[in-house]
Computed example of a mutant assay.
Amino acid sequence: MGKDSFYIKLVRDNIIHNFNYIKMSTQKEIIAVVKANAYGHGLKEVVPILVDAGCTYFAVARESEAFEILSLNISKIKILIFETIENFSLLKNFKNLEMVVNSIEELQELIRIKVDPLQLHLKFDFGFARNGFTEKEIEVVKNIIINNNIHFQGAMTHFFSSNTEETISVQNKFLDSIEYIGKEYFNIIHSQNSAATLLGLGDGSTHVRCGISLLGMLDPGIYNNNIKRSWSLSGPIYDIKDFSSLNFIGYERIKNIPVENYHKVAKIKLGYGDGFSKKNTNILCHVNSKEFPIIHISMDTSFILVDDSIKTGDLVEVYRDFEKSNDFLKMDHYEYTTLINNRIPRVVIK
C-alpha cells in the first residue's frame, strides 16, 4: 500500500458474527455468495474469514471468480457457479466446483457428456426474467429426470422482490414444482437471499443463500440490529492548498465551483480510476467528525473543500452513512461498494 493511499477496512469479527447469527437464527447451512469481489469487500479477503467461521459452501456468478477462490488452495469447500461455464469439462477436472443448470439444452448436454449430477443445481424461474426453467418447462424437466433416474445436488430459485406477498408466492410455486418433480431427486433446496432470510421467508429450503447480509449490509427497508457492518473506505489527506494560489481545482476553474464558506482544498488519493465514479461529485465525506463536500474527481485524485480545522494527514472517510449516500447517489450501497476496484487495497482488522 503506497504512502497516503486510500484503503477498504474489513472488520473480521463482524463478518464472523453475521455468519454465526444467520446460521443460528435460521438453523440452516449457509451458501455464502461472494460474487462481484464479495460485493466490493474483496473476495480473497472475505472467503478465508468465512472459512474460519465454519463456512464450506460458496457461490459466485462467473467461473473467473471461482478460479480466484481455487487459487487460495482452501480444502474441503464447494464453489457454486451461477452462470453457465464455457467448458463443461471444467466440472470433471475440479470436483469441488458446481454449476447451476439454466436451460433444457444445458441439462441435456450435461447428461450426454456424463457430468456428475451431484455437481449440478437446477434453477427454476418464476418471473425474474433471469436464467432458469420456466413453469411451462417443468413437465419436460420432470420427464428427463425420471427417465434418466438422475439425482442432483440441488434445486434453486431466486426471489425478485422483498415484497412479502410476492416472495411467498414465488416460494410456493417453487416448492410445488419440486414436490411435483420429486424432492427426493435433490440433495439440497435453496431460495432464500439475504432479504428473505432476515424477513423469515423461504420455508422449505434446506440452505440459505446470503451475500450482502453476511458482510453487514441490508436491503433498503430492512432493519436488523444484529447485522454488523464490516466495510469502510478511508484514507489520509495528503495535501492542502489555499484558493489564493490556485486558478483551477483539478480540471475545473475555481470560478465555476461553488466555494462559499471555504478557502482551502484538500487532496486525497481516490479517483474514478479506483472505481470512485464522478457521480460522487458533491457527496459529503467525513473528516474529524465534520462533513465536507468532494467537489471534483479526477482519475487518481479527488478534491475536498475544507476549513482551517483540517490538516494534512487527517483521516477522510467516504460513505460513512450508507443511507445518506444511497439517497445522494440514487443507488444502493452494494452497487457503489462493488465499483471500488482492486487498486484500492483491502485491509483486514479484528
Rank of each mutant, 00 (worst) to 15 (best):
L284W: 02
I294E: 02
I74Y: 11
M331K: 14
L215F: 05
N247S: 14
I249H: 08
G271M: 04
D176T: 05
S89E: 15
E260K: 14
K28A: 14
C210L: 09
T197A: 03
I79K: 07
E179C: 05
P48A: 12
K95S: 10
N96C: 07
I69T: 09
F67T: 03
M217S: 01
G2D: 14
K228T: 04
Y39P: 05
A38G: 12
Y251Q: 15
E166I: 00
K267L: 15
L233Q: 05
V46D: 04
F67E: 09
R346Y: 08
N37Q: 10
E184L: 02
R130S: 07
L246Q: 10
F322E: 01
V115P: 02
V259Q: 07
K324V: 00
N342T: 09
N102W: 03
I8H: 03
S244H: 09
L339H: 11
K173C: 00
E45K: 15
A266I: 11
E137D: 13
A196R: 00
A53D: 05
E291G: 02
F292Y: 15
F174E: 01
L72P: 06
I111D: 03
G250L: 05
R209V: 10
V265Y: 03
Q171I: 03
H286G: 04
R346G: 04
G235T: 12
T312W: 02
E291I: 03
F303M: 11
I212A: 09
T157C: 07
K279W: 01
V141G: 00
K95F: 03
I227N: 05
N224I: 06
K269Y: 11
H296W: 12
L122R: 09
